[in-house]
Nucleic acid binder design. Sequence first.
DNA 1: GCGACAG
DNA 2: ATCTTGTCGC
Length: 242
Amino acid sequence: MKFEAPTTWPTDAAAAISRQNELRSQVRLQDEVRSPPKLVAGVDVGFEENGEVTRAAVVVLEFPSLQLVETALAKRPTTFPYVPSLLSFRELPTLLAALAELKLTPDLILCDGAGIAHPRRFGIACHLGVTVDCPTIGVAKSRLIGTHEAVPSEKGAWVPLRDRDETIGAVYRSRTNTKPLYVSAGHRITLPTALDYVRQCTPKYRLPETTRLADRLASNRGQLPPLKSSCEDDDTEQMSLL
DNA sequence: GCGACAG
DNA sequence: ATCTTGTCGC
């Protein structure tokens, strides 16, 4: 996938916060997603060598069938510590390297972490979306900021996630009797549309299929389903990356 | 000053 | 995130 990668990168927290404040004005919260999307990507990051190496994975699924069509991996030295609200500065450099390897261009990217449900309204999903100019959704497994009422226990239920007087996302029950997901818009999408696509990407498990597959690839565990291309031809025996 | 705090 | 086995519940 083609995009313009950042030239400079903040080294300390103060510079990172300044960068977030500069870039946040580029976030667009209107639906600018191909409808329906044809390709939905999932991205995730894992670590090796006691955290000294960052490993980023991208998977691209056909929508709405959720069939795997492409994967990409990248490893880079870890250069930024984990600081709550500055996650993107730790994970994005390697994530962008993996995305650059993609032949296909996704119509939508689901990120592990927050979108605008962030202290400065610029979580990793926003940062990624603005950087590659692609619609993104933040899907976090736990809360960064915001308050909400109890979420009904039935699959599909959700309640607004709020900060002061604004709605910054939704707490979504993707599965009965399971911890809910924290969904927020990243870039070029509205919350209702984001919730709808997260729902369609989460037919069975707690996490969206995109995130589940990217997780496995990033952490190098489990087996990935065969690529769709290696299903249609059975004479080309391509060995899968794992 | 004391907690909370995506991955 | 990562270190780690079995176990309880749908």
